[in-house]
Design a protein around this nucleic acid. Structure first.
Length: 430
RNA sequence: GGAGAGAUGGUCGAGUUGGUUUAAGGCACCGGACUUGAAAUCCGGCGUAGAUGCGAAUCUACCGUGAGUUCGAAUCUCACUCUCUCCGCCA
């Protein structure tokens, strides 16, 4: 949700910023309706004030033995007028709400306009591994080592699903432990939220109503619109709703959270043949980091989140890069985003393992999440930031492919071994 | 799934035969007085959002949510959500 006062004050500036995201909008009808709405509020409230005044007078007149039937008749008319006004208001409000709900967040003014092609790489770590033998694709490695079962995953869940098995399951679990431990050391609270969320959660996150069809929904004949819950596409959707409709004390900020959940995504139409294996599945594991901060602390928080995600990848010894996304490549709710991408040899390309974003007050406005500033005593919207820390579904293939040797063995990164019985290599099935 | 009870500002809590209750009062918190300082005491302040206005201020809405009855609803009616207790089922 954008600040309506900003749109009233400088609609051209807002329009120009949105167009950098590739979102074209004309505010003239909105501004007209906004004006009409305020006029209507003024008229209706005056009627209500009269109603309240006269209603309080009725018992006094009665006590004085006066006939009030004329007064009641007149008030019946006023009550009708109020009802009319409120009906008009409801129609205007609905139009305005739909309009505002559809507006994405403003991009940070410092971002270049346009899409992916204008992303800028800001840091690169390591170099691509060089092999003195023909390296295998992670799907082939995983199958020969028996660590991922793709055919049976598809049997269970359809395409885009797999089963982690044996040391694959342990490696996956070790990665999650490695991430969580790092966050705990940095003072983040670890939590396990529900995976089935209500409509309001999707709205606050900025995913609904526009992107409601991108998530898996649970439907029922018992509800008016058939919708009951959706399955979270990322733990961010849960974490951003934790403090919905709250006014936080300034002293508790920044709130630093991390959560583990699987992420469930339809990924309709996004499959590409080179994304064979676990690069893009309908379910993947992720530790999400999330912060609620004061507006002035958002810059530092974003750098902290990116830094944390980078260190995790570095700890695994994987070649990766950090990019600052152009306005159009940031998702709708975000004002700026860094992507951290890890090198996948078989794709000869980098794939995203973490996205660190600053939502500004966009989500906080939708979820009515505020804090009371000590200095002024007034509530203000918090700023919310999130970053994966990390998603495993690209890390796992990267480890397999980058750590393979000529004999088809895969070396386990040092930092993970304590969760894998001290093993140096993934065991072959006997 | 069934039965019962409940939901009131940051918190506790009164108000539920509809109309001086303008949502009382306590606690917490903030400011001031007193005090060497603190405590205690006293005084004052103290929810959120919106509209009009340069401002002072005035008005409106909000008592779980949404409808309804009425000149007038925290209070009456209906639906829903959540919490608690008990029963049933269950990993």
């Amino acid at each position: 949700m954008l600040d309506v006062n900003l749109i009233r004050k400088d609609p051209d500036m807002v329009r120009d910023l949105l167009s950098r995201k590739g979102f074209e909008v004309d505010f003239s009808e909105y501004l007209e309706k906004d004006r009409a709405r305020r006029d209507l509020i003024f008229r209706t409230e005056q009627l209500k004030a009269e109603k309240n005044k006269v209603s309080a007078l009725v018992p006094v007149l009665r006590k004085g033995g006066r006939d009030v039937s004329d007064t009641l008749a007149r008030m019946r008319q006023v009550a009708d007028d109020i009802r009319d006004g409120e009906a008009q208001m409801a129609a205007l409000d609905a139009w305005i709400r739909d309009f505002l709900d559809a507006l994405p967040n403003l991009p940070d003014p410092s971002l270049p306009a346009g899409g992916k092609e204008n992303n800028r790489v800001v840091r690169v770590f390591g170099t691509a591994p060089v092999f003195d033998f023909p390296p295998l694709h992670h799907v082939d490695l995983a199958e020969s080592l028996g660590v991922v079962d793709y055919p049976r995953g598809a049997r269970l869940g359809g395409s885009g699903h797999w089963v982690y098995r044996r040391d694959g399951a342990r490696l996956e679990w070790a990665l999650l432990n490695y991430f969580i431990e790092a966050h705990l050391a940095d003072g983040y609270e670890f939590m396990l939220p529900p995976h089935l969320l209500t409509w309001a959660c999707g709205y606050t996150a900025g995913q609904f109503p526009k992107f409601r069809d991108d998530v898996y929904q649970l439907r029922s004949d018992d509800t008016p619109d058939g919708f009951t819950h959706f399955i979270l596409p990322t733990a961010e959707t849960a974490l951003v709703n934790l403090h919905r409709d709250e006014i936080l004390d300034e002293e508790v900020l920044p709130l630093r959270y991390c959560a583990y959940t699987p992420c469930y995504r339809k990924e309709a139409g996004s499959y590409r043949s080179e994304e064979r294996g676990m690069i893009r599945g309908h379910q993947f594991n992720k530790i999400e980091m999330f912060q609620y901060v004061r507006p002035e602390d958002a810059d530092a928080a974003l750098e902290e989140l990116v830094g944390k995600a980078e260190r995790l990848v570095q700890g695994l010894g994987l070649h990766h890069r950090v990019s600052r996304l152009a306005a159009g490549d940031c998702s709708a709710a975000m004002r700026r985003t860094y992507d951290i991408e890890v090198w996948i040899p078989s794709m000869n390309d980098f794939k995203e393992v973490s996205s660190a974003s600053d939502a500004g007050d966009y989500q906080a406005r939708r979820g009515n999440i505020r804090f009371r500033r000590k200095e002024t005593g007034k509530p203000e919207f918090v700023h919310t930031l999130n970053a994966s820390g990390l998603a495993t579904s690209r890390i796992f293939p990267a480890i397999l492919e980058c750590n393979q040797d000529a004999s088809g063995r895969v070396r386990i990164p040092e930092v993970l071994r304590k969760w894998m019985g001290g093993q140096e290599f993934l065991a072959r099935p006997s």
